[in-house]
Structures are given as structure tokens and as C-alpha cells.
Amino acid sequence: MYNFKYEVGTKIFFGRNQIVNIGKEIKMYSDKVLIVYGGGSIKKNGIFDATIEQLRINNIEYFELGGVDPNPRIESVREGAKICKEKGINAILAVGGGSSIDCAKAISAATKYDGDAWDIVINKKLIKNAIPVFSILTLAATGSEMNGNSVISDYKNNLKLGTRSPLLIPKASILDPEYTYSVPHKHTAAGTADIISHTFENYFTSEEGGYLQARMAEAILKTCFHYGPIACREPENYEARANLMWASSWAINGLISDGVANNWSVHPMEHELSAFYDVTHGEGLAILTPAWMRYVLNDKTVNKFVEYGTNVWGIDSSLDKFDIANTAIDMTQEFFTKELGIPSSLSELRIDNKYFDKMATQAVRGETIKGFIELTAEDVRKIYESCLL
């Protein structure tokens, strides 16, 4: 286990009616706030009105930036930063899922940056200051409510990139599982797949000595495998929604990655799918993950897959190692397709191999992906190809 510094500065208010705390938390930083949200469902389900009521009680003036896309665009970031600069806004409140929160984070940094907002996406070192970010979460998926990561897309150039800074970590987040009741099956399933993928990216590592991190990762995986299908079948099951929401936060806030994680592998590949085809992030991850697993399975990696198969899926440890590994991979894919109802191939998403060469080159950023197993552009292209079947 290598050296690390662990720090998460987000104050979490978890449970029913915790929205009553958001106004006083924002008030500590600003009397004006920009509310960032997506397609407008929060105005139909009452969450927006509840938010405004808390701002009114605390005498906070608010401005709106709606219409944030599922893969948030740089254009929205530019617009939000412009509003904040013109109105003298010193706080941002994201109400929605990871896309709204990611957009809010990028706006918070862009507001304090004199150049173009895309600069801070491609170079995180340019983030020297940011205005405080707050969130009211409505989708368990990205974990953005409790970390400093932000992923932004530039579709004019087919780019989807991540940036990060401790300055972007939300000051406070409201996690009310009831706010996820209205999330449709498709996005509940994709969100569950996203949580699982975050956990896999940290779990499948060549770094040794992270026993505690591995056991915590397995607990998150088992939670998702158990509660994901329940939430899809019973959207108002509080226990299922609550467990998924809490798993989402802990899968990607450093708890299971610090000290052990390699660079991620599947996410860079999926970001290219989203950049070129605007697919639902979790669906892309669910299709790519089993293919990546099969591609990297070898004599060197098999023991980690055995650990996964026996500890998470309960496969008989006395079986042949490769039988355990392949069974675990099969069970993973079957979970995504049969239990969550996610498409099993890129072809089902009407994706062909037209851009695979360019996507593969961009995924490795001109070098290689130095993850669990180092991947070249050719490796990535082969993984894409295997997902067409």
C-alpha cells in the first residue's frame, strides 16, 4: 500500500426531509446562489419548490441554469460562469444527478478563472480558486456529491474529459433516498452499473497490501448486486434506494482507492463512447466491463478474479482458477443484462466500428492506459470490437 492523504470535506445530510438544512449551509458562504439542474423533472416532483422554500427562509437570492445535459456540455459551464460573474454569485447549488453536480463544479472553478472554461477541464492545475458548491442529489450513480471530480464534454470536438481539484468538493450535500423514487428504470439500472464500475476500477489493482480497501469494495459490490434489481422493480423501496445512494458516495470518494488504486481502464474507454455517440454512461460501462475483464484475464491477473468470484459471488473456491474467473465474469455480465436490463452489446446501441480507431487513440491519450493491465490503443480497439458481438 502506497502513501496517501485522505480528506473529504463534504458535510452529508442523509435521510428523509434533510433538505431543511441546505439553506443555512449556503448562507454561511453567500447570499446569492446559482441553481444548476437538468431537464426540469425537479420542477414536476416538488424538489425545486422545496429547495426554493429553504432559500427563501434564509433570505438567499437565487438564479437558475437549467437544461444541463446527461453528459454536461462545456457550453453550459461557460454560461453558468458568465451568470455568476455578472451577478456576483458566490455559491452554486446543483439539484440533480452527477451531470448537474459535475457541471456545477466546473462552473465554480470557471467563475474564478479569467480564461476559457475548457482550459480548466484539460488542465486541472489551472484550478487555483473556486466558489463553494452544494448539492441535492436525485440519482445514485456518479458519487459526485462527495468528491472533487468533474467530467465535461465538448461535442464539437468529440471530447469527454475529467478534471479534479479539492476545491471542487461540495461543502454540503443532501442525500434523501426518497428523491430518487421518480428515477426511471433505465437510469436506476445505469446508475447502479456506474457505482459498480467505480468500485471495479479501484478493486482490480496490481497494488498489494490493501486488504481493508478490497473488503470494503466487496461490500459495495454486494450491496449493488443485491439492491440494484430491487430498486428497479420497486422504485419506492426506501431501503434499496438508501443503500444504493450511500454506496454511490463511498465507491468514489477515496475510501477504497487511496493507497491501492491504479489508473482506471474502463472509464477512459467509455468516455470515448459518450463523446462520439452520447450514450448513457452507465450502459456503456456495463457493456465494456465484462469485455475488458475477459481481455485482461491471464496467468498474472487470475488470482484477483478468483478473489472477486469467491468473495462476492460465492463461487466454490476449490474449482479451477480460470473456471472461477470466467464464471465470475459471466455472472457479472448476466447481472447487467438480465437483472438490470441493460443492453449486452454496442450493436444494440446502434454503434458500429466507424470511429473505433480514433476512439482508441483518444482513450489512451497518445500513450497507454496504465491500469490493472497496461492497454495500448490496439488493445482498446480490440475490446471495442468484442463488444459488437
Rank of each mutant, 00 (worst) to 15 (best):
Y2H: 08
K5C: 08
Y6Q: 05
E7F: 13
F14S: 10
Q18L: 02
N21H: 10
L34K: 08
G40E: 04
G40N: 04
I42V: 15
K44S: 04
G46M: 00
I47C: 01
A50H: 07
E53T: 12
Q54A: 01
N59A: 10
N59H: 08
L65I: 07
L65M: 14
D69E: 15
P72F: 00
R73T: 13
S76P: 13
S76H: 15
S76N: 15
E79S: 13
K87S: 07
K87G: 01
G88Q: 09
I89Y: 04
A91F: 02
A91S: 15
A91G: 09
L93H: 03
L93G: 02
G96Y: 06
G96M: 04
G98T: 05
S99A: 10
I101H: 10
D102F: 04
I107W: 15
S108N: 11
K112H: 01
D116S: 06
A117E: 06
W118M: 00
I127Q: 09
N129W: 06
A130I: 14
I131Y: 13
S144N: 03
N147V: 01
G148R: 05
N149P: 03
N149D: 06
S150W: 02
S150Y: 00
K160M: 09
L161S: 08
G162D: 07
L168N: 12
P170C: 10
E178K: 15
Y181A: 07
V183Y: 01
K186H: 12
H187Q: 14
A190F: 01
T192E: 05
T192L: 06
A193V: 06
A193Q: 08
F200D: 09
E207A: 10
E207I: 12
E207V: 11
L212M: 14
R215S: 12
A217F: 04
I220Y: 06
I220N: 10
T223E: 08
G228T: 10
I230Y: 02
P235C: 00
N237K: 02
E239G: 03
A240T: 00
R241K: 13
M245N: 05
W246R: 09
W246F: 13
S249R: 05
G254H: 00
L255R: 02
I256Q: 14
A261H: 01
W264C: 07
V266W: 05
M269Y: 06
E270H: 08
Y277K: 02
H281R: 02
H281V: 04
G282K: 03
P290M: 11
V296G: 13
N298K: 01
D299W: 06
V302Y: 07
K304L: 06
V306P: 12
G309K: 12
T310H: 06
T310F: 04
N311Q: 12
G314Q: 12
D316T: 02
D320K: 03
K321Q: 14
I324C: 06
N326M: 14
M331A: 10
T332M: 15
E339Y: 03
I342Y: 04
P343H: 05
S344P: 04
D357R: 14
K358M: 14
M359I: 09
A360Q: 07
R365M: 15
E374T: 15
L375H: 11
Y384V: 07
S386Q: 09
L389V: 12
